[in-house]
Design a protein around this nucleic acid. Structure first.
Length: 928
RNA sequence: GCGCAUGUGGCGUAAUUGGUAGCCGUGCCAGACUUAGGAUCUGGUGCCGAAAGGCGUGGGGGUUCGAGUCCCUCCAUGCGCACCA
C-alpha cells in the first residue's frame, strides 16, 4: 500500500537498480540469434566537476532507444566508458600535484555513481577506459598498423608497406609519386632503390606511411607547452585555455588523412548525419576542383606553379602573388626591390596569427621586381608578395584576376595595377564580379564562350600544351598526432639513428612510466623527456618523448566495446562482424570535425587492411542539443555589503555578481541561504522590493561551475526521482534543440507519473487492477498511444511521445480504467522512458520476470479506424461549422447536405457557390 | 563575407507532412475541498471585441479552393567556416 510519494519513489528506484545490477539484466552476449542493434553514446571525458543536468540528455535518448529495441526483440549493445586521457587532468596535476591517474579514477567513480542513479541500461561489463594499458595497448597497435601502411592511389585504399617496397624493388616509384607534393624525394628506378641504404630507404618509406614522422608546420602553444591539431586552435588561440598559438617547424607524427579526403567526402553520402554536420565536415575537407598551371618567370629559369578554380579567367590575369613564405621569393626578387621585400618579410614574420586574422581586411604587399609570362596570352605580368596568399593552401601562389575576384581587385586598386576586363559589361570598374555566366572577351581562343563552359576548354588547352592539368585541391591538412604531454598514449616506436622503428606486437603495451614531474621539459619535448631511463633504451636507442592526442583513444573505442576483454586482438573478427556498424550514435555537435573524422578515418584504414567489413563507423548520428544554464544575478551597492533587488537597483550604483542558482526559487533569492553561501556574505543586508522579496536578474549562458548555474542531476533525483528527471528532460523539446535548464514544468511530468501510478491503485494506495474486457474506447486510447509512441521513438521525437503518454493517462483517468488488458501493454510501452516505475508496476501486475524481458505491444489498426468523421466546413478557407458524415458517404451527398445547411445559406446569402471542394476524411471548402 | 539551421500564446512546445493553428505541460484567472498549503480536484485561458465578428505562425510578396508547411525576398538569432585562389 503506497502512494507515489517521494519516499516511495526512492524505495522503488533503489530496489530496482539493485535488482537489475544483481541479476545482470543488462549484460549483453555476442552470441545471439536475435538481430543486433548497436546504440552508442559519445563517452565522456570525466571532468572534476561531475555531471550536470545537461550531460545526460543524450544518454536518456539512447537509453530509451536501446530499451525500446530490446523490447522489440533485438540484441542491443549499449555500452559506456571513459575518454580518460587528456589535458585537463594533466593541468590539474601541475597545479595541485595530484597524479592524473589518481584524479582521473576519482572522477570516473563520481561519474559512475551519478550515472548509476539515473538508471541507464549500460552493460558495464564492457566498460573501457582509454588510459587503461589493456586498452591503449590496442590504440598503440592500431597506430603501428597505420605506420605499416600506405595509401595506394591506384587501388584507392590502404595497403601494407611491403606492397610498396615490392613495387620499389621492381619498378621504382615512377607510377607512385610521394603524396606530399613538396617532398624532396625525386622519382627513382628499381635499381636506384636497391642501391639505397637502410636509412635512406626508411626516409623514403616515411614519405608514404599513413602514420609518419616529418618536419611540419605545427601549431605550437607555448603556454601549454604542446603542439595542437588544427581543430584544437580557434581563431589563433588554443581551444583549451585560450592561449596564443604560433606556427613552428617541428618533427612530429602526423596521420596522412589527406589521402582519404575523397573517401571521407564520398562516405558522407551513405551515412545518416544531419545536414549541418555533413556540411561542417565537407567544409573542413574543403574540396575544390580546378587547374594547376605554371607561369614562366621572365629572364629566369624558374616556373611558378599556381592553383586556380577559374582557369577560364586566365586571360584576365594582371599580376601574380606569392605567399611571403613561398620558397621562390628570395630567388626571384630583383636587386632594386630587395630591401623592400626584406622589410616586408620581416613585417609579416612579426605578425602573430591572431593579428593576421584580426586584420583580414588590411591590404599589404610588395612588388618583387620580377615579371612572369602568361602561358596562354604571352602577356608580361608583375609578380608580387602578399600575406593574403597562404603558403599552406594550393601551391602558395596565385594568378590574380582583379576583374573577377574581390581580393585581387582590392589589391590591384590599392597598388594601382591596371585591370583587364574580360567580361564586358559585367564588370563595372567599381568592384570585381565573380560571375560564371558572362561571355568572355579579350580572352583569345576563349572569346565568345560562357565562362562556366570555358573552364573545361581552358583546362583542355593547358593539358594539350603541357603547361597545366586538371587538379583537385583540399583544404584539409594531415593531422598532427604528437603532443608534448604526459597523460596520453606513448608512441610504440624506438628511434635508432634518428629513424623510428615499430616495437613488436608482443612488447605492447608500452606503458606510461610513473612520475610526479608533469612539467614540460622545454625544447618542445614532452615531460617524458625528463625520464632519462625510460627515454634512453640503450646507447643508440631512444623512445619518443611525446604522447598521442586524446583523439587516438576515441577513434576506435566503439570497436573495443564489441569484445572488450580480448587479449589477443583489438576485437575478435566474429564480434566485429556481428555487431558491425554503430546503428545509432548520440553525442554533441562539438565533435563534428575531430573525433568523427578520425573515427571515420581509422575505420576506413582498418577496413582496407582487412580487419573490418564496413568502412563507416556510424550509420546514424544524432546531435543532442546543449542544455544551457540559467544564471542568477544579485546587485551589490558598490563598496558596501548591501544587495539591491533587481527592481530597485537602478537607484544605486551596483556591481553585478552571479549567485548560486540552487538558492534561488524562480527569481526570488533565499536571502538566508545567500548569507550562508559564502563567508563574505554572512553580514549581507538586503534592499527588497515593495512586497518584501529579493528578485534576482537572470541570463541564459553556458552551464558552468564558475557561473554558479550548474544543476546537479542528483538534486533533481532527490526531489522527484530518476524517472521524472528522465521524462522531464525528454519532454523539454526536440532532442536536437538547445534549451535552457528550467524546472518549471517538472511538476507536470511528476503529476503524470503519479496519475499513471494511480490508475493501478485505489484511493487507499492498494493495487486495484481488474481483469474485465476493455471497451472499444479504452482499446482505442491504448492503441493510439502505442502507435504514436512507437512512431516517435523511431523518429527520436521523445518530447511528443511523453506528451502522448500524458494524453493517454488523462483519458484513462477520466474513464476510470483499471483494466489489466489496457494497463499491462502500457506499462511495457512506458518502461523505456520510466524504467523504475514501470518495473514496479509490472511486478504489481503479477509478473516475476523483468518488464525488459517482455515484448513490445503490437498496435492494432482496427481499434483506430473510424466509420465517420466530423468535417470542418469552411467557407472561403475559414472554418464556419462542423458536420458529421460517414467516411464512405459519396461526395455528392455531402455537398447537398452542406449546401443546404443553415450556416452555408447564411454566408452565401442564397447565391450558388463558385466551387465546392470535398476531401474525404479531411475537409469541406466552399468557395463563394 | 560564405554555408547550415531556427523563428508559432506570458513560457517550453505540438500540428497525421498542403486540409480545423495552438495538442501536452507550465504560468495565469475563477471555483470546489480543506488541518490555509509550494497539496488535490473542476472549469477557463492566442490577441482585439459586450457580441456579431475581425486579426493571428519574424516582415513583405507569390502559388493554391486552402499555406506554419511550397516558392521569391528581406529581417533576427544560433552554429560552422573564414584572405582557401
Amino acid at each position: 500500500m503506497a502512494d507515489y510519494t517521494k519516499e516511495e519513489i526512492k524505495r522503488i528506484e533503489d530496489k530496482w537498480r539493485n535488482k537489475w545490477a544483481n541479476d545482470q539484466i543488462y549484460t549483453v552476449s555476442n552470441d545471439s540469434s536475435k538481430p543486433k542493434c548497436y546504440v552508442l553514446d559519445m563517452f565522456p571525458y570525466p571532468s572534476g566537476a561531475g555531471l550536470h543536468v545537461g550531460h545526460p540528455l543524450g544518454y536518456f535518448a539512447s537509453d530509451i532507444y536501446a530499451r525500446f529495441k530490446r523490447l522489440k526483440g533485438f540484441n542491443v549493445l549499449h555500452p559506456m566508458g571513459f575518454d580518460a586521457f587528456g589535458l585537463p587532468a594533466e593541468q590539474y596535476a601541475i597545479e595541485h600535484g595530484v597524479h592524473p591517474a589518481k584524479s582521473t579514477q576519482e572522477n570516473i567513480l563520481t561519474y559512475k555513481r551519478q550515472l548509476g542513479k539515473i538508471g541507464f541500461c549500460y552493460d558495464w561489463s564492457r566498460e573501457v577506459q582509454t588510459c587503461d594499458p589493456s586498452y591503449y595497448k590496442w590504440t598503440q597497435w592500431i597506430f603501428l598498423q597505420l605506420f605499416d601502411s600506405w595509401f595506394n592511389r591506384k587501388t584507392n585504399k590502404a595497403e601494407r608497406i611491403t606492397t610498396l617496397t615490392w613495387i620499389f624493388e621492381n619498378e621504382g616509384n615512377a607510377e607512385y609519386p610521394t603524396p606530399n607534393q613538396k617532398s624532396k624525394t625525386q622519382k627513382f628506378t628499381a635499381a636506384e632503390w636497391k642501391a639505397l641504404n637502410q636509412k635512406q630507404r626508411q626516409e623514403i618509406l616515411m614519405e608514404y606511411r599513413l602514420a609518419y614522422l616529418a618536419y611540419t608546420d605545427v601549431n605550437w602553444c607555448e603556454a601549454l607547452g604542446t603542439v595542437l591539431a588544427n581543430d584544437e586552435v580557434i581563431n589563433g588561440v588554443s581551444y583549451r585555455g585560450g592561449f596564443p598559438v604560433v606556427k613552428k617547424q617541428m618533427r612530429q607524427w602526423s596521420l596522412r588523412i589527406t589521402e582519404y579526403a575523397e573517401r571521407l567526402l564520398k562516405g558522407l553520402d551513405e551515412i545518416d548525419f544531419s545536414d549541418s554536420m555533413k556540411e561542417i565536415q565537407r567544409n573542413w575537407i574543403g574540396k575544390s576542383v580546378g587547374a594547376e598551371l605554371e607561369f614562366e618567370i621572365q629572364h629566369l629559369k624558374f616556373n611558378i606553379k599556381v592553383f586556380t578554380t577559374r582557369p577560364d579567367t586566365i586571360f584576365g590575369v594582371d599580376f601574380m602573388v606569392l605567399a611571403p613564405e613561398h620558397e621562390l621569393v628570395k630567388s626571384i626578387t630583383t636587386q632594386e626591390q630587395k630591401t623592400e621585400v626584406d622589410n616586408y618579410l620581416k613585417y609579416v614574420e612579426s605578425r602573430s596569427e591572431v593579428e593576421r586574422m584580426a586584420e583580414v581586411k588590411k591590404i599589404t604587399g610588395v612588388f618583387t621586381g620580377t615579371y612572369a609570362i602568361n602561358p596562354l596570352s604571352g602577356k608580361k605580368i608583375p609578380v608580387w608578395i602578399s600575406e593574403y596568399v597562404l603558403a599552406g593552401y594550393g601551391t602558395g601562389a596565385i594568378m590574380a584576376v582583379p576583374c573577377g575576384d574581390e581580393r585581387d581587385f582590392k589589391f590591384a586598386k590599392h597598388f594601382n595595377i591596371p585591370v583587364t576586363n574580360i567580361i564586358g559589361s559585367h564588370y563595372t570598374g567599381n568592384e570585381a564580379n565573380p560571375t560564371k555566366d558572362a561571355v568572355l572577351e579579350n580572352s583569345g581562343f576563349l572569346n565568345g564562350l560562357i565562362m562556366s563552359k570555358a573552364i573545361d576548354v581552358a583546362i583542355g588547352e593547358l593539358e594539350k600544351r603541357k603547361i597545366g592539368k586538371r587538379k583537385v585541391n583540399y583544404k584539409m591538412r594531415d593531422a598532427g598526432w604528437s603532443r608534448q604531454r604526459y597523460w596520453g598514449e606513448p608512441f610504440p616506436v624506438i628511434y635508432r639513428d634518428g629513424m623510428p622503428y615499430p616495437m613488436n606486437e608482443n612488447e605492447l603495451p608500452l606503458t606510461l612510466p610513473d612520475t610526479d614531474n608533469f612539467k614540460s621539459s622545454g625544447n618542445g619535448e614532452g615531460p617524458l623527456a625528463n625520464l632519462n631511463e625510460w627515454i634512453n633504451v640503450s646507447d643508440n636507442a631512444k623512445r619518443d618523448s611525446n604522447t598521442m592526442p586524446t583523439h587516438a583513444g576515441a577513434a576506435w573505442y566503439f570497436l573495443r566495446y564489441m569484445d572488450p576483454h580480448n587479449e589477443k586482438e583489438f576485437a575478435g573478427k566474429k564480434a566485429l562482424d556481428y555487431w558491425n556498424q554503430v546503428d545509432v550514435y548520440i553525442g554533441g555537435s562539438e565533435h563534428a570535425v575531430a573525433h568523427l573524422l578520425y573515427s571515420r578515418l581509422w575505420v576506413k584504414i582498418l577496413h582496407d587492411l582487412g580487419y573490418l567489413n564496413f568502412d563507416e563507423p556510424f550509420k546514424k548520428l544524432i546531435n543532442q542539443g546543449k542544455i544551457t544554464g540559467d544564471s542568477r544575478f544579485v546587485y551589490r551597492v558598490r563598496g558596501t555589503n548591501k544587495f539591491v533587488s533587481s527592481g530597485v537597483k537602478d537607484k544605486y550604483e551596483t556591481d553585478e555578481l552571479r549567485t548560486d542558482v540552487n538558492i534561488v526559487n524562480g527569481l526570488e533569492l533565499d536571502t538566508e541561504a545567500f548569507k550562508k553561501w559564502r563567508p563574505d556574505f554572512v553580514s549581507a543586508e538586503f534592499i527588497l522590493e515593495e512586497d518584501g522579496k529579493y528578485i534576482c536578474g537572470s541570463a541564459i549562458e553556458k552551464m558552468s561551475k564558475s557561473y554558479f548555474n550548474v544543476v546537479n542531476p542528483d538534486k533533481v533525483i532527490d526531489a522527484y526521482g530518476a524517472d521524472t528527471l528522465r521524462l522531464y528532460e525528454m519532454f523539454l523539446g526536440p532532442l536536437e534543440a538547445s534549451k535552457p535548464w528550467s524546472t518549471s514544468g517538472i511538476d507536470g511530468v511528476y503529476k503524470f507519473l503519479r496519475r499513471f501510478w494511480n490508475l493501478f491503485h485505489d484511493s487507499n494506495g492498494n493495487v486495484n487492477v481488474i481483469n474485465a474486457e476493455p471497451t472499444h474506447e479504452e482499446l482505442k486510447v491504448l492503441h493510439a498511444t502505442i502507435k504514436k509512441v512507437e512512431q516517435d521513438i523511431n523518429n527520436f521525437s521523445f518530447n511528443t511521445s511523453v506528451s502522448a503518454f500524458m494524453i493517454c493517462a488523462n483519458e484513462l483517468s477520466s474513464m476510470k480504467c483499471n483494466k489489466q488488458k489496457i494497463l499491462e501493454p502500457l506499462t511495457i510501452a512506458l518502461s523505456p522512458f520510466a524504467p523504475h516505475i514501470a518495473e514496479e508496476l509490472w511486478e504489481k501486475l503479477g509478473h516475476s520476470d523483468s518488464v525488459f524481458n517482455a515484448s513490445y505491444p503490437k498496435f492494432d489498426e482496427q481499434y483506430l479506424t473510424e466509420s465517420s468523421f466530423e468535417y470542418p466546413i469552411s467557407i472561403n478557407g475559414k472554418v464556419r461549422a462542423k458536420m458529421n458524415f460517414a467516411l464512405d458517404m459519396p461526395k455528392e451527398d455531402i455537398e447537398k447536405i452542406v449546401l443546404a445547411s443553415e450556416v452555408v445559406q447564411k454566408w452565401s446569402e442564397g447565391k450558388p457557390p463558385k466551387k465546392v471542394i470535398i476531401v474525404p476524411g479531411k475537409i469541406v471548402n466552399i468557395v463563394l
